[in-house]
């Protein structure tokens, strides 16, 4: 913003200072490191097997939010733009929620990738030649 002041305010959009962008990127890289570090823990020992997933997804969500707010200018954009984005995410969550209603009714092997049959097919292939 400050650099653009000399143009009498006729610029369009918000100018984000380079230093600030580098700072955000630093945070993002640091958080990536944290996620990798946390993934080395064995949470089953403290009886929290799902902890790894929760932490990883929480960090990823914060990272995505930072990218959205600052790299993608959502912080300074019209709220309607952010609204579109948030609605799309809500729709995805809705879809996941509905799809999850009947997952326990699935067959164990949803798509046959039966390896025993592969072996048999190999035998057949060989006897045919």
């Amino acid at each position: 913003m400050s650099n653009a002041d000399q143009h009498h305010g006729d610029e369009i959009g918000h100018v984000i200072p380079i230093k600030f962008l580098v700072f955000i990127c630093g945070i993002l890289l640091f958080m990536t490191g944290v996620t990798v570090w946390v993934s080395w823990f064995d949470f089953t020992e403290i009886d929290m097997a799902e902890m790894g997933i929760i932490v990883a997804m929480a960090v990823a969500t914060v990272k995505a939010t930072l990218v959205g707010l600052y790299f993608m200018h959502l912080r300074w954009d019209r709220p309607f733009v952010g609204f579109i984005f948030v609605v799309s995410i809500i729709l995805v969550l809705l879809m996941c929620g509905l799809a999850f209603l009947d997952t326990n009714a699935y067959q164990e092997e949803i798509i046959p990738g039966d390896t025993a049959l592969v072996t048999e097919a190999l035998d057949k292939l060989k006897s045919d030649h």
């Binding site: 990883a56 960090v59 995505a64 959205g68």
Partner: peptide, 14 residues
Amino acid sequence: DVIWIFLFPLWYLI
């Protein structure tokens, strides 16, 4: 980039 931010932990880490 945002999509990869989610793909990375889901596939490689957890």
